[in-house]
Each structure stands twice: as structure tokens, then as C-alpha cells.
């Protein structure tokens, strides 16, 4: 199924294996945090380790592996790294602001509903 090369030098294989293991563990921990943390404002911190550390590990592993495989420096994974590092904060901030605005709006709505209920009903005659 897999088309791995016949052999891989040791100095290259060990960092690649180590980075793959670290990246996948961190990704798993981030998703676990997304699943089991109790509140939304805590859950938003779970995926951020996936995005920074996990992505960094996998991209570094891919860069090292292809550099060793092709016998020439392959660094175009840096593009994904730069792109993810520039965009992930923006999306995190927008989701956070959306959540804060929605919560504030719900609180306002509840407060006005309570206010309406507590007001004395107008007499109809």
C-alpha cells in the first residue's frame, strides 16, 4: 500500500519519526481538549495547540523527509507554515468575537424579557 523508499539514512529517519509522533500526540490532545472541556471559552484554547505545535511538527517532518528523499533542499512547506501562522490567529479572534457578541446579545435579550415580565401588565378595560 505504502510506497516508502528502500532505505532512509538514520540521521534523517529519527527526527522525522520523532516529529511525527510529537505532532500527532499534540493534535490528539488538542482535539481531546475540544471534546471534553466544559465551556466554550475554554474549548477555544484546545485547538490552538493543534494549530501551532501540531502543524509545525508535521510540516517540519515533511520538509526533512522530502529533503532527504530528493537529495536537494525542499522548503516549500514553509509557505503553508507562514500561511497558517498568519491566518489561524485571525480566525480564532473572529470566532471568539462572534461568541462574545452572541453571548452579550443573549444576555441582553434575557434581561429585556425579564424586564417585560417584571413590569406590571397594562390594565385592559
Amino acid at each position: 500500500m505504502m510506497q516508502l523508499p528502500e532505505s532512509l539514512p538514520l540521521w534523517l529517519g529519527i527526527p522525522v519519526v520523532f516529529l511525527l509522533l510529537a505532532g500527532s500526540l499534540v493534535t490528539l490532545i488538542g482535539a481531546l481538549g475540544l471534546l471534553r472541556l466544559p465551556h466554550f471559552y475554554q474549548r477555544i484554547h484546545g485547538p490552538s495547540i493543534t494549530i501551532t505545535f501540531g502543524t509545525g511538527c508535521f510540516l517540519l517532518a515533511s520538509m526533512l523527509y522530502f529533503t532527504g528523499l530528493e537529495q536537494r533542499p525542499i522548503v516549500h512547506e514553509l509557505l503553508i507554515t507562514a500561511f497558517v501562522l498568519l491566518t489561524a490567529p485571525v480566525s480564532a479572534m473572529l470566532i471568539m468575537r462572534a461568541a462574545v457578541y452572541r453571548d452579550l446579545r443573549n444576555e441582553n435579550k434575557k434581561a429585556t424579557e425579564n424586564l417585560h415580565q417584571s413590569l406590571p401588565k397594562p390594565k385592559t378595560d
Binding site: 505504502m2 516508502l4 523508499p5 528502500e6 532505505s7 532512509l8 539514512p9 538514520l10 529517519g13 522525522v16 519519526v17 511525527l20 509522533l21 505532532g23 500527532s24 500526540l25 493534535t27 490528539l28 488538542g30 482535539a31 481531546l32 493543534t50 508535521f58
Partner: peptide
């Protein structure tokens, strides 16, 4: 080395699937 890499790849695919 290659078998180790293969197992590492299987492991990370499993972890990512779980995530």
C-alpha cells in the same frame, strides 16, 4: 529504519483519525 517510519506513519494516521 523504514519499518520504524512505517509504524510511526500508521500511528500518526490513527491519532489524526481519532482527533
Amino acid at each position: 529504519m523504514i519499518t520504524l517510519l512505517q509504524y510511526a506513519l500508521y500511528f500518526s494516521q490513527f491519532c489524526l483519525l481519532l482527533a
